[in-house]
Design a protein around this nucleic acid. Structure first.
Lengths: 155, 155
DNA sequence: CTAACTAGGACTAAACTAGTCCCAGTTAGG
DNA sequence: CCTAACTGGGACTAGTTTAGTCCTAGTTAG
C-alpha cells in the first residue's frame, strides 16, 4: 500500500484549512470548522508547531497560524513533521538489518526514497489546495519568506 | 514514515534471490539460502505467484521461478503484488471519506501517487540487484517476453 | 485573578502486521 | 499405485502500531 499515516493526511488537511487565511485560529475553532474532535486536531497542531510549520500564540485569544506562505511549504515538510523521515524500508537508514550481508538492494532503496522525497518537495501546500491542474512535476517554488504576521513567537 | 510493509521488502529480496538464475527453487530451499523461516518465505512466494511474478511448479521437485526476465519486472509490480495498489492516502481510491466535502486535496494526492508509481515502474528488478549506479530515473525497459523456461504452468 | 488558550506527555482501545500452522490438491519416482 | 515432496489457500495468534483521549502545567488577555 505504501501508506502514509492518517496523521500526515489530517496534518495536510489542517494546513489546508489554515491556508485559507493568515489569521490565528484556536485548535477548537479549527476542529469545529473541519468537523473533527478537538483533542485530535489539538494534537496535530502541536506536532505541526514543533516542526515550525505553524506558529503558536499562547494564552487567551491564542491559537495557531501558518508560519510561512502556503507556496513556501512543501508536502515533504508536512509529511516529515507528522510521520518522520520519508523512508520506504527500515534498513535504508542506519539501523542494522540481520540480512544485510545478503541484501544487495539496500542502496537502490535509498535512491527510490530520494525520488519520492524529491517529488514531494516539489508540491507546495498552495498547489495542494488548488483545483487539480497536474502541477505535481512543476518547478519548486523558491522560498521568499513573506511573513504573514509578526505576532508569533515560536517561529 | 511513508512505509512499505515488510512483505514488500521481503518480496523484493526473494525476487532478488531468485534472479540469480532461472532455475526452479522450492520455498524451503530459498528460505535456507536467505536465512529466513520456511513458512514465511512460502507465504511470500505464494503471494508473488498469485500475481504472476513467479511461476509455480507443483508436485515433487516443484518450486518457483521468476516468470520473466529480471529486467522486465518493475519494483512497482512487486510492491503492488505484496502490498496492494500504491496509494498514499485512503481516500485516493474510490472509498468514501466523511470529510470529502471539506477536502480540497484529494485530486492532488492522486497526482502524487502517480508520480511515485511512475518512479517505481522505472526501476526494474535487474537494476535493483546491481550495485548502485543511480539509475533510478533512467528510462524504463520495454518488455521483451524472453521466457526463461517453458516448464511453468501458472504463467 | 480568572478564563481561554497552548505544551507535553501518559494512557488505552482498536486495527493491522507478521509469522505460524493446517489441510487439500498435485506430481515425480519407486 | 503409493508415498514423499512439493504448492495452494486460508485460518489463527501474538505482537506492534496507530489513533484518539485525557490530564497537568504553563502562558496571556482582560
Amino acid at each position: 500500500m505504501l501508506r502514509l499515516s492518517k496523521f500526515a493526511d489530517y496534518g495536510t488537511q489542517v494546513m489546508a484549512y489554515m491556508a485559507r487565511d493568515g489569521a490565528v485560529h484556536s485548535a477548537s475553532e479549527v476542529a469545529a470548522g473541519m468537523g473533527m474532535a478537538a483533542s485530535t486536531v489539538s494534537k496535530i497542531l502541536k506536532m505541526l508547531a514543533r516542526e515550525n510549520l505553524v506558529a503558536s500564540v499562547m494564552g487567551a485569544k491564542g491559537g495557531y497560524m501558518l508560519s510561512r506562505h502556503p507556496k513556501d511549504i512543501s508536502m515533504a515538510e508536512i509529511i516529515n513533521a507528522m510521520d518522520g523521515p520519508i523512508s520506504v524500508t527500515e534498513c535504508s537508514g542506519s539501523s542494522t538489518c540481520s540480512r544485510e550481508s545478503f541484501c544487495s538492494t539496500r542502496v537502490n532503496w535509498q535512491d527510490i526514497n530520494h525520488v519520492i522525497q524529491d517529488a514531494l518537495e516539489k508540491v507546495s501546500l498552495a498547489q495542494m489546495i488548488k483545483p487539480n491542474n497536474h502541477q505535481v512535476a512543476s518547478r519548486h517554488q523558491v522560498m521568499d519568506v513573506s511573513a504573514i504576521s509578526s505576532r508569533a513567537r515560536s517561529v
